[in-house]
Amino acid sequence: MLSRVASSIYWLNRYIERAENYARFIEVNLNLTLDLPRGTTEQWEPLVATTGDHESFTGRYGKATKETVIQFLLADAANSNSILSCLLAARENARTVREVISTEMWEQVNRFHLMVRGGVTKGLSSRNLHAFLADVKANCHLFLGITDATMSHGEGWHFARLGRLLERADKTSRILDVKYFMLLPTVAEVGTPFDIIQWSALLKSASALEMYCKQHGRISPNQVAEFLILNPNFPRAIRYCLIKAEDSLHAIVGSESDRHSNLAEKRLGRLRSEMDYADMADILSGGLHEFFDDFQLKLNRTDDAIYETFFALRPIEGNVVKEKAQ
């Protein structure tokens, strides 16, 4: 597979996954603020902080309000990570690999792009915002389903899954981080019914509430964090994402699952095994927020290694690795 093509498939899927997660970011905050006790001010600043685009936001909008933050995360073409920008980038990437992905995948990206652009152009009120965000998520799921059902599960598909799952692992860590930034009215409210409501809203935004409840029943902050970080079976949990991403990486390289033959495999393998052996006591002792900071840094390094290993356009050396029959 062409390096350029592999890169486009990887980014196509990262952008689609990012759009879905931004929809989830906005949803979790809408849910949290709706449940705030009377008299407390809505908190939108934390949401911008978790995306890492705080500077760009403050520079152009100044104060974080519900309107400005939603505009920034959803409809701002100048924010390269907004849902609108993600769809535009996803579509451009899909266009460059139209011949590799299935027609159905292409048409879904195209329709999805038209749907988001249409919604943004018409304007979103708080009345139709929930429906719009639900649509965004459903369209991402549809793309994922179409990909699984219409594309051969070969190299291209594995690059798609690799991109999607690394993006998802990153964003799940950021959704959990929202809770860290979300200031409680008083410290004394930790563990109160209100605190519990916030944690369940958070689970809900990761579509994890039902699966969590099946496993643990009652909501306990530690178990929620554990479920979203360390669960090996829940598809939005960080550890699950890393396990499957690593499977795809090995499938691309064609190497044994316990070996590494390049930097990408080495870094991803190391990160995955950290999750295998971590427990909540360790994580909490160092601080949850610090844990996520460190995790996101390592994930970025893994992404750099993937770029270097597969996508970078290096000059072709004199001795050629593979030739077709002469």
Binding site: R4, E99, I252, V320
Partner: peptide, 25 residues
Amino acid sequence: ELVEANDLAVVEGSVHMRTTKGSQR
């Protein structure tokens, strides 16, 4: 394959494309 000029290079007189697994004639 749909290639762009950057995907191709001439090596020892033959044209090759850059792939994730090295180059291919």
